[in-house]
Amino acid sequence: MEYQYPIDHDWSTEEIVDVIKYFESIEQAYEKGIERDQFMNAYRRFKEIVPGKAQEKNLCDEFEEQSGYSSYKAVKAAKESSAGDKIKMK
C-alpha cells in the first residue's frame, strides 16, 4: 500500500522506527497474523513513546484513515487473547 505512517517530528530516529514497527505490526495482524507477544511488545514500546490517550487516538485515527486498519481493534484482540496465541484480524 502507498501511504505514510503518522509520526511526530519531535521524536528521535529510534522512536520513529519503533512507532513504525508498531504500525507494521497492526498491518501484519490484518494481513498474515502476528504472535500476540510480538504485537504487545510493539504496543508497549509505542505507549512509552506516546503515553497520552489524545495523541495515541490522533495517530491511530490517522493511520486507520490511510490504511483501513484499526489499531483499537487489533489491541483489543491482542488483550483478549492468551500468551503464545497468534492474532489475525478479519
Rank of each mutant, 00 (worst) to 15 (best):
Y69N: 01
F46T: 00
K57Q: 10
G52P: 07
V17W: 06
Q66R: 15
Q55A: 14
R36F: 03
E65I: 07
W11N: 00
R44N: 13
S71E: 14
F39N: 03
I49W: 02
A78M: 08
E24Q: 14
S25C: 06
P51T: 01
A54N: 13
F23E: 03
Y43V: 07
S82A: 12
M40V: 02
E64Q: 11
A77R: 15
D8P: 05
R45G: 00
K57E: 08
E27D: 13
Q28E: 12
K47V: 13
G33T: 02
Y69M: 05
E15C: 00
D18R: 08
A54E: 15
K47Y: 10
I26L: 02
H9T: 15
A83D: 10
F46V: 02
E35Q: 12
Q28R: 10
D61G: 07
E31L: 14
I34N: 05
E80R: 07
D8C: 09
S82M: 12
Q38E: 13
K76I: 13
F23L: 03
S81T: 11
E35T: 09
S70W: 02
D61K: 08
Y43Q: 09
E62I: 10
E80P: 01
I16F: 04
E14C: 10
N41P: 07
A83K: 10
W11C: 00
C60I: 03
